[in-house]
Write a protein that binds this DNA or RNA. Sequence first.
DNA 1: GATGAATGAGAGTTCATTCAT
DNA 2: TATGAATGAACTCTCATTCAT
Lengths: 202, 202, 202, 202
Amino acid sequence: MSSEQARPEDGERPLRRDAAENRERLLRAAFDLFAEQGPEVGVNDIARRAGVGPGTLYRRFPTKEALIDALYDIVFDEILDTVHQALDSEEPGEALELCLRRSGEIMASHRGCLARLWTAARPDGAGDRAPEWWAVMDRMLERAQSAGRVRQDVTVQDVRACLISVRCIVEETVADSPDLWRRHLDLLLAGLRPAAVTQAVG
Amino acid sequence: MSSEQARPEDGERPLRRDAAENRERLLRAAFDLFAEQGPEVGVNDIARRAGVGPGTLYRRFPTKEALIDALYDIVFDEILDTVHQALDSEEPGEALELCLRRSGEIMASHRGCLARLWTAARPDGAGDRAPEWWAVMDRMLERAQSAGRVRQDVTVQDVRACLISVRCIVEETVADSPDLWRRHLDLLLAGLRPAAVTQAVG
Amino acid sequence: MSSEQARPEDGERPLRRDAAENRERLLRAAFDLFAEQGPEVGVNDIARRAGVGPGTLYRRFPTKEALIDALYDIVFDEILDTVHQALDSEEPGEALELCLRRSGEIMASHRGCLARLWTAARPDGAGDRAPEWWAVMDRMLERAQSAGRVRQDVTVQDVRACLISVRCIVEETVADSPDLWRRHLDLLLAGLRPAAVTQAVG
Amino acid sequence: MSSEQARPEDGERPLRRDAAENRERLLRAAFDLFAEQGPEVGVNDIARRAGVGPGTLYRRFPTKEALIDALYDIVFDEILDTVHQALDSEEPGEALELCLRRSGEIMASHRGCLARLWTAARPDGAGDRAPEWWAVMDRMLERAQSAGRVRQDVTVQDVRACLISVRCIVEETVADSPDLWRRHLDLLLAGLRPAAVTQAVG
DNA sequence: GATGAATGAGAGTTCATTCAT
DNA sequence: TATGAATGAACTCTCATTCAT
């Protein structure tokens, strides 16, 4: 939630700071309450938790939906940054795996707010960076396949399904079994790898 | 609110039949509407679709929550039946895989109603057969491992995670990509298998 | 507000009666409160005055606007009935005058709810009987002119303006000077008549 | 809230000029927006249109009501000036008629802001010049009657009703039929004149 | 003095649930 | 018993007004 908005350009007016603080508080409160109580939390509750009036919330976010979108964008941006880092810095074969693991970590740190993230409805939502994600994942998958680390028949859709899967496991199990999602991701990663002589064993 | 329903006392009065029919209609309407419009559907809409008044709905189900629970139980029962069949009739090694596939099919035929199924909140829900499921899956996993079809480090928790995963993929993708969940399940199954010399390939 | 809706067809179900009563109460409460406090009254106030919950109001009228429309329609229907009566039964020359006077009386009995009646926005509102009004007034004006009771240069638009005028005077003065609108209407009617040698006098 | 504005104390500081300019801008913006969007416009919209913050608006006008009152006063003052001119300069018989016509023109140039002008609520509003208006109109009516241009039974209340009528027609029709209010006023004026042998014609 | 962010009571509306018929 | 009208707390959102900057 740190590097999220309004890169403080040189001359920042003092008033802006309060507003930005309130925005931060609202997002934090929303994260917390969604995690605690699910997606039905009322905007007034969020405002109260943030220590502001409902009017202030609506000054920052014209709609409850807009607030939720902002939450999504924060997580999505974090993930995209991570994906780019992985693509740039890792050796080709490892990038995909690393990127899935890191995405999982990010989701685990924002549980409760991911319900509709990467949903059928979202990827082509207006103004978001979903196309970018698809493009980068495409490259990453291609490389991993070239390096022989991932089966040739795997598509980006499958990779996306893996992420949906991880998100879902995080949401539903992280509270009780904080590590289960990691085991599950290991399983998925194992499934992605070319299984040399797997059948021979059986 | 005393003797609610079901227990078919010896001489079943015709009135009882109407009641049962209403119950069926309500459940069917609920299934349809949840699948069509998601989990926000109102009880009045369900009642209207079922062709009864809201009062009748509340005579059959004391709460919206109770209606949804009944939905879950139906799906859960279907799955449990399938699990039992798989355990009884298949050769030990195949049972687990088959049972996951069949569970997937059942879920795919009831999409939109599964949101909270197998959720952290559910297993200790009142009146459900979750313990039974755990027990059977335990045996099935053990056999599959004995037969060398599943890695030794896999736990029932992991199997449950696989099912959560399948449910989630079904819910979010079946409308647009009706087969994606099957590909995903293949991936999971591949991940479950002992990957003989997988690492050697990398 | 008497002959307003749901002509009680032969077999009337008993439940309907309560609903109809509530509808009546709501309309009456709305009439009263609009008259007392102007068009800003809240729907909850109206519901409270009617002795019902806000939900009941919204069962009868899907929107505040719809409630207000119903109010308008009631007055409009009363007026239209009167207009038809005047057209049918009076001698041609008198009909227009009589009809304006009666319309005035009806408005005076519903002051406070007429704000937007016959407004530029209304006459072509969906589902209302405005075209009918225009047609009848057209005939009535023509007859009055044929009978030499109204100047030849008067148009239906002018007649409509007279009614707007009466409504306005009613709304703003009937509370303090209950008869002023009648004097004003007399003045308007005098202005409508062919003023034989009026100028000669001056 | 002590020395609000206006009273131009001898040495007018430059700061004062800004304030006056803001006041003007706000009034102009309010006129425009009320004309464009009706009486529901919010104060923030007015401030934005005027190019100032809402705080500034509240420095000039302690209340939305006060801003609207100021609008009324402007129109009212214009009209009063016109009335005085008519009384002073015209031949006695023509003054009343001319004054009504001019008042109509002024209203037509300020449509959308007249809703409550000359309303029952207004004449005893704080700080307005209503008594003055009554006095002048009284004299003007008396003269017109003495000159035989207006019927003897007409009262100042009737004249006021004529003005309310004109205002109302202006407000509701000037956008679509810019001349209708003039025709209506002609009708009213005809009705005010002694109708010598009118009835004989019928 | 001007700004515009914050306020918060209250608006219109919904919906799970109850109850008179 | 089934009905559907009634309920009313709670929801999202607005806007006249205040106040820190």
